[in-house]
Amino acid sequence: MIKGKKILVVLPVSEGQKERLEEFADKSCFTYTSYKKATKKMAEEADIIIGNIDPDLLEYAKNLEWLQLNSAGADAYVKKGVLPEEVVLTNATGAYGPGVAEHMLAVLFSIQKKLHLYRDNQNQCEWQDEGEVMSLRGGCALIVGLGDIGLYFARLLRNFGYRVIGIKRRPGQVPQGVDELYTMEHLDELLPEADVIFSVLPETKATKNIFNAKRFREMKNSAVFLNAGRGSAVNTEDLCQALIAGEIYGAGLDVTDPEPLPSQHKLWNMKNVVITPHISGDFHHPATLYRIVDIAAGNLKRYCAGEPLMNVVDRETGYRK
């Protein structure tokens, strides 16, 4: 049992999920709250925090030993001065595959079948034919950032006959559901092959504006670009110009730069863009919170046993080690 630790949980957990978390620690150690309701006093008292607390409160968390995020991205928490080096930082990589991948597949299909245009027409009470559409089957998909989300997306696309190419930071064995695997150095030579490009990149110095005017020009003019990683991976102005010029067919964005996207931004009014407000990785999909709780509970068990924690974040890269 974890003795004498005060554990702050910043997650909308059910009673059953509380029991799952408390299995390896005395119940009196736990405080449950939300992101908006977490206080300076709660942060001051916590030895362990489970969930994405407001980074500004962490300066008061002088007793903190370990922060378990409920997100896969850790960009707000790896900035200098946010967390002392001795605090272990873990993320929720592995929780978001179904939620994000299924959402972005729906966005892709909407673009390919012009369903977003027909919804716009419906809102205007217009009976209008929008012309030729794409087939849902076949083609080549390039997944840039082949983690849990990328792999889940790859396996979904394989059901529709896609050839799937993955890009990772480091070389390794080609995972099941992927046809070919490369590293980032091969991005430029792979972009011209892809009918669908899916970015699932985190926010790091290396990924900022990686999709820019040069790379949009390398894509097919029939390509669909999807982004569900971080908006900072895309130069938004360059994306707009590529869409206007017809250098790519369309874009599906669950993340943007800036975010939230200003109401007057020209992206909102582009007919070949589908935008959702960074919600694919939230708790909307029923599997997501269960997976997060499983990751946190597994790490509590390891913490209790003095074993190394899973999903430890590298502070320099922002990725899981």
Rank of each mutant, 00 (worst) to 15 (best):
Lys5Met: 15
Glu19His: 11
Phe24His: 14
Ser28Arg: 13
Cys29Thr: 11
Thr31Ser: 10
Tyr32Ser: 02
Tyr32Val: 00
Tyr32Arg: 01
Thr33Gln: 00
Thr33Met: 00
Thr33Pro: 00
Ser34Gln: 11
Lys36Arg: 14
Ala38Asn: 04
Ala43Gln: 03
Ala43Lys: 04
Ile49Ala: 01
Asp54His: 14
Pro55Cys: 14
Asp56Pro: 05
Leu57Gly: 04
Leu58Asp: 01
Leu58Gln: 07
Trp66Asp: 02
Trp66Lys: 01
Trp66Asn: 00
Asp75Pro: 03
Ala76His: 12
Tyr77Glu: 01
Lys80Leu: 12
Val82Trp: 07
Val82His: 03
Glu86Val: 14
Val87Ala: 05
Val87Ile: 13
Val88Ser: 06
Leu89Lys: 02
Asn91Gly: 02
Gly94Gln: 04
Gly94Val: 11
Pro98Ala: 15
Glu102Ala: 07
Leu105Arg: 03
Val107Arg: 00
Leu108Arg: 00
Gln112Thr: 13
Lys113Trp: 09
Lys113Asp: 06
Lys113Ala: 06
Lys113Ile: 10
Leu115Gly: 09
His116Leu: 10
Tyr118Lys: 03
Tyr118Glu: 00
Asp120Phe: 10
Gln122Glu: 07
Asn123Met: 15
Cys125Asn: 15
Asp129Met: 11
Glu130Trp: 12
Glu130Met: 14
Glu132Asp: 07
Met134Lys: 15
Leu136Arg: 10
Gly139Met: 05
Gly145Arg: 03
Gly145Trp: 06
Leu146Trp: 07
Asp148Val: 08
Asn159Arg: 13
Lys168Glu: 03
Lys168Met: 07
Arg169Gln: 09
Arg170Ser: 11
Val174Asn: 02
Gly177Thr: 10
Thr183Asn: 08
Met184Gln: 12
His186Tyr: 14
Leu190Phe: 10
Leu191Lys: 02
Pro202Gly: 06
Thr204Arg: 09
Thr204Phe: 11
Lys205Pro: 06
Ala206Met: 13
Thr207Gly: 02
Phe211Arg: 00
Lys214Asn: 15
Phe216Lys: 02
Arg217Gly: 08
Met219Cys: 12
Ala223Met: 11
Val224Gln: 03
Asn227Asp: 05
Ala228Val: 10
Gly229Asn: 02
Gly231Arg: 03
Asn235Met: 04
Thr236Met: 09
Glu237Leu: 12
Cys240Pro: 08
Cys240Leu: 14
Ile248Trp: 03
Ala251Thr: 07
Val255Thr: 08
Glu259Thr: 08
Glu259Leu: 08
Pro260Ser: 06
Pro260His: 05
Trp268Ala: 02
Asn269His: 15
Asn269Arg: 13
Asn272Leu: 10
Pro277Leu: 13
Ile279Val: 08
Ile279Thr: 08
Gly281His: 01
Thr288Tyr: 07
Asp294Gln: 05
Gly298Asp: 11
Asn299Arg: 05
Asn299Trp: 07
Leu300His: 05
Ala305Asn: 13
Ala305Thr: 06
Gly306Thr: 12
Pro308Tyr: 08
Leu309Gly: 03
Asn311His: 04
Tyr319Phe: 12
Arg320Phe: 11
Lys321Cys: 14
